[in-house]
Structure formats: C-alpha cells, structure tokens
C-alpha cells in the first residue's frame, strides 16, 4: 500500500514540476497545488499506513480493543493542508491582482520591478 501511495506521490510531483516549468503563472499555481498534494501524500506514506482503530479512548478512558492507528502524520497533514490552503488562496488572489494590473500572466514579461538594462 505504501508503495502505491509513494508512486502516486511521485507521479503528482513529476506532473507538478512539468506544470511549474511553464511561464504562465496560472499553470505554475496548479503545479504548486499538485506539488503540495504530492508532498502531503508522501508524509502520509512516510508515517506508515497502518490499519487500526481510531486513536480515541472509550468511556471512562477505556483503550480500544485493537491496535490504534498513528494519529500524528494525520495531524501534521491537517496542519499542512490548512496552511497550504491559506497560502494558495493568497497566491490565487495575487494572481487575479497581477492579471488586472498587467493584463497577462506571462512571468517572463513581468519586468516592472526589474526592468531590462537600457542605461549605458
């Protein structure tokens, strides 16, 4: 199972790199989204996919009968997803703003902050 998830994660990362190499900001963003999902999957796989009961205590603190699943990778993931969501939302808003400002999304043509050399 881990192998499968690892392969899927690798596939996502490969796809994302292809997308991110594009000069278009929108494609780059989609690549970034795929990349963070790929990494999230990698963390899940690195934490080992164990079948087990949810790590919750029963009434009066009774332990569940089976082995409990490791909750930490999922907690890490949840945090990472939330943060990734926030950052992605900001990046999306920035992209819209950039499109309004420049009229295009080609990063190679965004030269306002770093104009090409013209002075002798």
């Amino acid at each position: 199972m881990e192998t499968l998830v690892a392969c899927l994660s690798g596939f996502l990362v490969a796809t994302s790199i292809w997308l991110m190499l594009s000069g278009n900001l929108m494609r780059f963003l989609f690549g970034l989204l795929l990349l963070s999902n790929g990494v999230n999957l990698a963390i899940l796989a690195a934490g080992r996919l164990t079948p087990g009961a949810p790590p919750l205590l029963g009434a009066k603190g009774a332990l569940p009968p089976d082995t409990m699943a490791n909750a930490l990778p999922q907690a890490l993931l949840l945090t990472a997803i939330v943060i990734g969501f926030g950052l992605f939302a900001f990046a999306l808003a920035l992209t819209i703003r950039a499109y309004r400002t420049f009229g295009h999304l080609e990063v190679d043509r965004m030269r306002i902050a770093e104009p090409a050399e013209e002075r002798e």
């Binding site: 970034l32 900001f90 920035l94 965004m110 902050a113």
Partner: peptide, 10 residues
C-alpha cells in the same frame, strides 16, 4: 510591488 510579490510568493 505586485510584480515583486509574484516572484517572492512563488
């Protein structure tokens, strides 16, 4: 600033 931010953020 928008131009700089695009590069910084990505």
């Amino acid at each position: 600033a928008i131009d700089g931010a695009v590069k910084y953020v990505t």
